[in-house]
Write a protein that binds this DNA or RNA. Structure first.
Length: 208
DNA sequence: ACACTGATAATCT
DNA sequence: GATTATCAGTGTA
């Protein structure tokens, strides 16, 4: 069983990811996420039904959905709907708390520690995630990628606003982040090259 | 600090 | 053939 992705977002913030490969282990603290639902969410991969790529979104909660975008990047999600419903939470940004040398080796373009996992494709690169990890169980102790609860996050420490880079459903505030972290990615409205502007809903506080 | 643009290929229509 | 839940580099301030 699972829960609604939007409800899962504030729970995942502050959570800890551990990714192990033959090179070692990288540990990261999640500071920014976005919810993607199913048939009612035009911005979701699941909106137009099940395909070979997105099949994992219909699978059990607590598994990893990894997909390939823009010809050279991967993005990772935590599946959370379960029970035949599609839904997932995109991992947008994190702070590397252990294994910084390995993460830096995988991210040669990053000039500062905060840039290592600031952005969804940067995060997957820093943790070494690829399509090979599509479908792995994040809750199994022997899994190459694991997710566990982190330090408690106060409800007042979470902010929310519109999702980044989505043209459809640009109005729903389904992006959540920890404003105290400088690893949160810069706001950019959906679509390319269009009129940029200040974050319109930037700082709606989330009440407990 | 912000704005703009080219790269690049799996996936879907 | 079009689209894309992006990034890095370059230019301007």
């Amino acid at each position: 069983m699972g829960i609604d992705p939007v409800a899962a977002c504030p729970v995942l913030l502050g959570g800890v990811l551990e990714a192990t490969s033959t090179d070692g282990t990288v540990t990261a603290r999640i500071v920014e996420v976005e919810a993607y639902r199913g048939a009612d969410d035009p911005a979701s991969h699941a909106y137009r039904g099940r395909t070979a790529r997105n099949a994992v979104m219909w699978g059990p909660a607590g598994h990893l959905y990894v997909y390939f975008v823009y010809g050279m990047h991967f993005c990772a999600n935590v599946v959370c709907a379960g029970d035949g419903q599609a839904g997932a939470v995109l991992l947008r940004a994190a702070e590397i708390t252990d294994g910084q040398d390995l993460a830096a080796a995988r991210r040669p373009a990053a000039r500062t520690a905060r840039d290592l996992a600031r952005g969804p494709a940067r995060l997957t690169a820093a943790l070494g995630l690829t399509r090979e990890h599509d479908g792995v169980d994040l809750t199994a102790p022997d899994s190459p990628v694991r997710l566990r609860a982190g330090e408690q996050v106060e409800p007042g420490e979470v902010e929310r606003g519109p999702r980044v880079g989505v043209a459809a459903a640009g109005d729903v505030p389904w992006r959540f982040w920890l404003p105290g972290s400088r690893a949160v990615s810069r706001y950019r409205p959906g679509g390319r090259g269009g009129a940029n502007g200040p974050d319109p809903v930037a700082t709606s506080r989330l009440e407990g």
